Amino acid sequence: MGSRNLYDVLGVKPSATTEVITSAFRARVRELRPDIRVDAVTAERFGRLRAAYDTLRDPGLRAAYDRERAASRWFWWWAVHLPVRAAAAGGTGPVGARTVRASADQETRATT
Rank of each mutant, 00 (worst) to 15 (best):
L32H: 05
R48E: 06
W76Y: 15
L61Q: 13
W74E: 09
V100T: 14
N5T: 00
T42I: 14
A79Y: 15
F25L: 11
V12T: 05
L6Q: 05
V29W: 03
A70L: 15
S15C: 08
P94M: 13
P34C: 05
R50I: 03
R62C: 09
R57I: 13
R37I: 02
Q106F: 11
E68M: 00
Q106A: 15
D105A: 15
V41I: 04
K13N: 03
Y65W: 05
A52T: 01
A87K: 07
H81A: 08
T22K: 15
I36G: 10
A71Y: 01
R85P: 01
G91W: 13
E19D: 04
T18A: 14
A70D: 07
D58S: 05
Y53A: 02
M1F: 01
S103H: 12
R45G: 07
A71L: 07
V95Q: 13
A87W: 05
R50Q: 14
D58R: 09
I36L: 14
T22N: 13
G96N: 15
D39S: 05
F25S: 12
K13S: 12
R62G: 09
Y53T: 02
T22I: 13
L6I: 02
A24F: 04
I36M: 14
K13P: 00
A79C: 13
W77C: 10
A24T: 03
G2D: 11
D58G: 05
R33G: 06
A63Q: 15
V9T: 03
G47Q: 00
S103C: 11
R67P: 01
R85Q: 10
P94Y: 02
R62N: 11
Y65N: 07
R30V: 10
Y7M: 03
T99I: 11
L56N: 00
A63T: 15
